[in-house]
Amino acid sequence: MAARAAAAIALAAALALAAGTAAGQSLARLTVRSFALTSDTLHPRVDEPFHLIVTLRVREREMQIANLDLPLLADVELLGDERQTVSGSGGTLYRETITVVAHRSGPLAIAPATLQATDARDGRAKEWYTNGLTIVVGGAGTSALRSGAAELLARALGVARMLVWALGIAVVVIAVVMLLRRRRRAVAAAPAPPPAPPPIVSRSRRQRLDDALLVLRAERTRAAAVAVRGAVWKMIGANDGATLGDVLRRRDSFVPETRELLIALERSAFTYDDDLQPAIQDACFALERAMETVP
């Protein structure tokens, strides 16, 4: 677990480097409109992947966002990372989806992501932070959760009450905005609406293989190979604690490319150190071939 955590930290750092630029490079001039960290669930379950999403909106049209540091994910295992930059007349929307999995139940604090840029409004170099996140990982045998269930329920009811109020206020505000927009549209063409963030859908098999390839290319270590092997096994529905022989007997493994991938990942997880890099390279090729077979 410690090795996986260390790998996750190292990988997060590597990905952060990949997302950003080398230290010392001049900062981009940006007008930050919003910068947030969200999760597709605040109550994931143990060993079930979920996504952390970093969203940045800026006024300028940018092809890529530099100097954005992802949160260090020491308590979860990193499975993949996907970046998307949409720029248009309304500005730029940068969205990074990090696929992670927690192996322990209980509360989990995710530190904020950071962005270094020159504020276009006053020309000063600044650092922006997203919000942090506290996620409660649920799982079998979480006695602490069970004992605090009543308290959580009471809190949830309170939050729901507030949400109803907020919803009411929002409806009124939206109605007013719509009314104003209609009036404006009569005078001049309305500006293009900002691009809507893509909906969060469960990761397809191809995306998961893509995540695995990304991780293995970024971190060519034994720990990363073991983590990718575990993720691929989970993807085809194999149990933890099974052997390669058990997995190859599964119907999902009858596809030659999948078999080749499983064997290559097994080799990279257990071979001797001198053979590790060639084994990881073969596993990357096998991942690419497996992706070609997935629609």
Binding site: T243, L244, G245, E266, R267, F270, T271, Y272, D275
Partner: peptide
């Protein structure tokens, strides 16, 4: 093979 796997141990 010149490296052992869990399958070898289990077998």
């Amino acid at each position: 093979r010149d490296f052992a796997l869990p399958d070898d141990v289990r077998a």
